[in-house]
Design a protein around this nucleic acid. Structure first.
Length: 423
RNA sequence: GGAAGCGUGCCGGAGCGGCCGAACGGAACAGUCUUGAAAACUGUCGUAGUUAAUAGCUACCGUGGGUUCAAAUCCCACCGCUUCCUCCA
């Protein structure tokens, strides 16, 4: 939800942002009007309710013989109060309905345009140049006996897989490396619930246009989360948190479930696009003034992690038209995937400014004792998809895969994954 | 899954239709006393919104509805917790 003060004082800023996103500008005018209506209705209701409260006390203390007459007056007041209350409620609902459709105000410097208009900020690392017939990750996985796609399909259907032996250990090693890095940076580890109630799913904004991406369990009326962001954002819902000692940072680990309903036929080979994977997600609650700086930090931590995995990558600055509705700015890091001769997204980090926190009612106390809405940011630190890039980029002429040095301590010191070695 | 009970402020715990935003106790904070501390005594003390305001007003006694002139108190639904039985990683 956008900032009401901004809406009241400077709606043209919001209009400009909506325009940049290719969203409706008209909504802003509607919101201004709905907000004014609501404020007027609320004032009416509050003064009537004050009158009623005073009257009730009069009735309570009045002598018996006067009560009947006073009650009659009270009855009249009561109907007026009820009418005013319901009209205030209606006005609030109308206001919210419009307000919730307006997307976050885009930060300055975000590239204009749509999906293909991203700006490449930098390319880092050297793409491997293989002087031998190189393989894609599903071939490597099969030959090294670390990824079993056939049995994944047999047991659970398409887009499911088994990570086996060193494959399974590699993922756990990567997660541990990421977790250690996050802990060092001040993140508290959280293992989050992956089944959540409808109101949480809706509150965090994942039940909108992407509702068919989400698994739902009708027998229990629960949703399977596609990212721990849902739980991490909901964690401090309706709370006033203490930021006096710096940002609150959480590293959420969870299995993620996605139906991939709209992507039939895309990325069907290997584990680039699957229904179930694991992810370590960074999530920060910060003062709004610090949001930009925090965003740069999240990006730096992501880059650090990619560098530890010795992956060539590029950082892109997503264009306004391709931002999720709650993001004010988003950076993606894409790693080079040799078999596809292209960069593929491994991480994403969004600065949601106060948009998401306002929706979830998360505040903090400022130095002067007042409360204010804080800012939230999120960013991927490691996912199962990273294995694709690690396996492909580090493959050797003999068919083995060289393990990046930073991961070796988590794998008993092993330097290579070969077909002969069993975990 | 079966049975019973319970959800009140930082904590404990009263209140069971009206001068209740809520007794009392503890904690906390300020002060008196003391060389200092403890003890004792005095005072302050729920949260949030609105506001220039520690003024006023509004909302909040698990959540959402309902009854009533008036609800923490009555009714309904939901959520959660505890104990016992059943089951179980």
């Amino acid at each position: 939800m956008i900032d009401l003060n901004l809406l009241r004082e400077n709606p043209s800023t919001i209009k400009a942002s909506q325009r940049a996103r290719g969203a409706s500008e008209e909504l802003v005018d509607q919101a201004v009007k709905a907000d004014a209506d609501w404020r007027a209705d609320l004032a009416t209701f509050e003064s009537l309710r004050a009158e009623q409260n005073a009257h009730s006390k009069t009735v309570a203390t009045a002598p018996k013989e006067e009560k009947a007459a006073l009650v009659a007056v009270g009855q009249e007041l009561s109907t007026k109060v009820k009418a005013a209350e319901s009209s205030a409620n209606e006005a609030a609902a109308k206001r919210d309905e419009i307000l919730w459709q307006i997307e976050n105000v885009v930060c300055e410097g975000v590239p204009a345009g749509g999906e293909d208009d991203f700006e490449v900020l930098r390319e880092v690392g050297t793409k491997p140049s293989f002087n031998f017939p190189f393989k894609d990750h599903s071939e490597l996985g099969k030959e090294l006996d670390i990824l079993d796609l056939e049995r994944g399909v047999k047991v659970s259907g398409s887009r499911f897989y088994f990570l086996k032996g060193w494959g399974a250990r590699l993922e756990i090693a990567m997660m541990n490396l990421a977790l250690d890095q996050a802990a060092e940076a001040g993140f508290t580890a959280l293992i989050t619930p992956t089944l959540v109630r409808p109101e949480v799913m809706a509150g965090t904004g994942f039940l909108g246009s992407h509702a068919d991406e989400i698994y739902y369990l009708p027998a229990d009326d629960l949703y399977l989360t596609g990212t721990s962001e849902v739980a991490l954002a909901g964690y401090h819902r309706d709370e006033i948190v203490d930021l006096s000692e710096g940002p609150l940072r959480y590293a959420g680990w969870s299995t993620c479930y996605r139906r991939e309903a709209g992507s039939a036929g895309r990325d069907t080979k290997g584990i680039l696009r699957v229904h179930q994977f694991n992810k370590l997600e960074m999530f920060s609650y910060v003062e709004p003034e610090q949001a930009d700086a925090e965003h740069e930090k999240l990006l730096a931590w992501q880059e650090q992690m990619l560098q530890k995995c010795e992956l060539p990558y590029r950082v892109i600055h997503t264009a306004a038209g391709d931002l999720g509705s709650s993001a004010a700015r988003k950076y993606d890091i894409e790693a080079w995937v040799p078999s596809q001769e292209t960069y593929r997204e491994l991480t994403s980090t969004s600065n949601c400014t106060t948009f998401q926190a306002r929706r979830l009612n998360v505040r903090y106390r400022k130095d002067d004792g007042r409360t204010a809405t804080l800012a939230t940011l999120n960013g991927t630190l490691a996912t199962t998809r990273w294995l694709v890039a690690i396996l492909e980029n580090h493959q050797q002429p003999d068919g083995s895969v060289k393990i990046p040095a930073a991961l070796r301590p988590y794998l008993g010191g092993a330097e290579y994954i070969t077909g002969k070695v069993r975990a």
